[in-house]
Design a protein around this nucleic acid. Structure first.
Lengths: 117, 117
DNA sequence: CCGCGCCGTTAACAGGATCTTTTCCACTTC
DNA sequence: GAAGTGGAAAAGATCCTGTTAACGGCGCGG
């Protein structure tokens, strides 16, 4: 169960405003801003984005993403993760067409790294 | 917990007349004026308005609004916040139809930012 | 004391946004 | 070329919000 230390740590790790390049993440508001512009992610989309951003430059495996966001094992041929990735990418591109943030690693998963297009 | 210094600071922060764009807030009088025109909020409506205005451009989560205004946890499916928001919006619109002040963030909460309609 | 109006809260409904699932197809890998 | 994987779009179910109305408490004036 959560104790005070955990809560404090969680607060520090996930509730603090974080800036990665031109991306600002405000967990307390479920908001992502790129160069002052609001991306407008939904709650679920934000959770996915934050999950990847917390592991900057690391490839997060698809089943792990699933289990973190939906809980339990990922059913075979489940497309939930894809669909969400797609939506996040679309909104990111609307706000910052010159940048690529989420990269596909075929057969493995996804990686968050801001890179020029 | 709050101490005297905090209270003094709070007083300075919340009791001082504040102007945001064409909006003037007079906490000592529970009054909001838009371009010299009185909005005519009730006490409760004013509290909500002030709460959001103090956090200009930040999304304030619905449960947080509830706990700040009513205290304690927000019951599931409680609509108190909505209805109050609705009333505030209605009065704001009567006075300034060309402006939008309170923006909805679906599944999250509300944000105060004066914007042209 | 009584009626009236104002205010805050609660309830209910309709519409809209979001989430999930499904489908099709292009692409990668072997 | 075959099997597997991911991109894209759409449909259905679910959840959330906007809106209106109704209820009860309170204070004021008659």
């Amino acid at each position: 169960m959560a104790n005070l230390a955990d809560v404090a740590q969680t607060t520090n790790a996930t509730k603090r405003v974080r800036t990665i390049g031109n991306v600002e993440i405000r967990p307390a508001e479920f908001q992502v801003l790129i160069e002052e512009r609001r991306v407008g992610l939904t709650v679920r989309e934000f959770e996915l984005f934050q999950l990847l951003a917390e592991r900057l430059d690391a490839v997060v495996q698809r089943p792990e993403i699933y289990s973190l966001m939906w809980g339990g094992e990922m059913p075979r041929r489940d497309r939930s993760v894809d669909v969400l990735i797609r939506r996040v990418r679309a909104k990111l591109e609307q706000v910052a067409p010159e940048w690529r943030y989420i990269h596909t690693h075929f057969g493995i998963g996804y990686r968050f790294s801001p890179e020029p297009a």
